[in-house]
């Protein structure tokens, strides 16, 4: 096992394109070309053991696709995902992947869809145990399930019930218990609290922090809610139209955002501290990822865009410890 601070997950040049063209016959008859949606278009980052690395961005920026690529729900179009030094994209068979699948798990957004409605909670939680053949007898499965349910703040008897008997927050606890049942080291959390009420969100975020400390977990946390990201993250990557535009530790990203898009996002956060700061109105909307603007994808909405931004896509370069993809920052204009 790698030591703390060493990367547990490394993503190199990762890209995933989706073919969103119409069926062949319709395309031929209507004379339309193939359409490709570049959901993720070449991103690099590393997640260190024990930290919470977050990806933030608006809908359609590709953050959920990254999460799904890492846990193997999508196959990358190109690029590599290394887990503990092993290139997962090079592992062909189910059997070869199994040891790594056990060590990483995922928590989903919608607690009403992520639990099979026809299964009892104890079977849902025990499924990874059985799939990875982690315990031998029925007795120990039951014991482990009870232990897991208690660990996430439910009662051991709750295993007998069906998902519909629980509230959204309790269901998310069941999802977490299930994710933890294989003793993973790394959890991918895709908008785990977006479907929950704020008071329940606080319960789940606190639970996730407690579990991280207790079990030494590493999190990849995906959210569109900047205040939540600020609360949970050690480091943050900001995504826009399939690319990373800024990667920095949470402190400096939120105190001193560099990329114009990061600044824009921070301006849109509601002012709950009632400082009288007005939300900056942002011109324009996120362009379609099927036909992204040339050059820097953000240039049509950027107040600082120059000629170079319209022509040339900026690379993610280091500036004062942060990684920023912006010609303006590179040229010292911003």
């Amino acid at each position: 096992m790698a030591e703390a601070g060493q990367p547990i997950v490394e993503v190199v040049g990762l890209a995933r394109y989706f073919d969103v063209s119409k069926p062949w016959l319709a395309r031929v008859l209507q004379g339309q070309p193939r359409l490709t949606l570049k959901a993720v278009d070449g991103i690099d980052f590393a997640i260190r053991r024990g930290e919470t690395f977050s990806l933030v961005g608006e809908s359609g920026c590709g953050k959920s696709t990254v999460a799904r690529l890492i846990v193997g729900l999508h196959r990358p179009t190109r690029g590599h995902i290394r887990f503990d030094g092993v290139d997962l994209t090079a592992l062909g068979t189910r059997a070869a992947q199994a040891p790594f699948r056990r060590r990483m798990q995922m928590i989903f957004q919608d607690p009403f869809a992520s639990l099979n409605p026809r299964w009892r909670v104890r079977d849902i939680v025990a499924e990874p145990l059985r799939a990875f053949a982690l315990v031998a007898t029925g007795e120990t499965v039951a014991g482990r399930v009870a232990e897991l349910l208690t660990q996430v703040g439910l009662s051991a008897n709750d295993g007998e019930k069906y998902p519909h008997e629980f509230s959204g927050g309790q269901r998310q606890r069941i999802s977490i218990a299930r994710a933890l049942s294989g003793n993973p080291e790394f959890l991918v959390c895709d908008e785990p609290t977006s479907a929950l009420d704020v008071s329940v969100q606080a319960q789940i975020l606190n639970l996730m922090k407690d579990l991280q400390r207790r079990l030494g977990l590493t999190y990849l946390f995906i959210s569109h809610n900047l205040a939540v990201i600020d609360h949970v993250s050690d480091r943050v990557g900001v995504m826009y139209l399939g690319r990373l535009c800024e990667v920095a530790d949470a402190q400096s990203l939120f105190r001193r955002p560099r990329h114009p898009y990061t600044r824009l996002l921070l301006d849109t956060i509601p002012d709950l501290a009632m400082t009288g700061r007005a939300r900056g109105p942002v011109a324009g909307e996120v362009p379609s990822p099927i036909a992204p603007p040339p050059g820097c994808a953000f240039h049509p909405r950027c107040p600082h865009a120059g000629e170079r931004c319209r022509l040339e896509a900026p690379a993610l370069l280091e500036h004062d410890g942060a990684l920023i993809a912006c010609h303006g920052v590179e040229e010292g204009r911003l």
């Binding site: 509230s167 309790q170 009420d197 606080a202 609360h231």
Partner: peptide
């Protein structure tokens, strides 16, 4: 409710939480 909302720039290790649910 107000304490359970994460607020930008407010450094807290744990959010204050209301146990249970509606």
């Amino acid at each position: 409710l107000m304490g359970s909302i994460p607020i930008m720039g407010r450094e807290v290790e744990r959010l204050s939480q209301i146990d249970g649910s509606m």
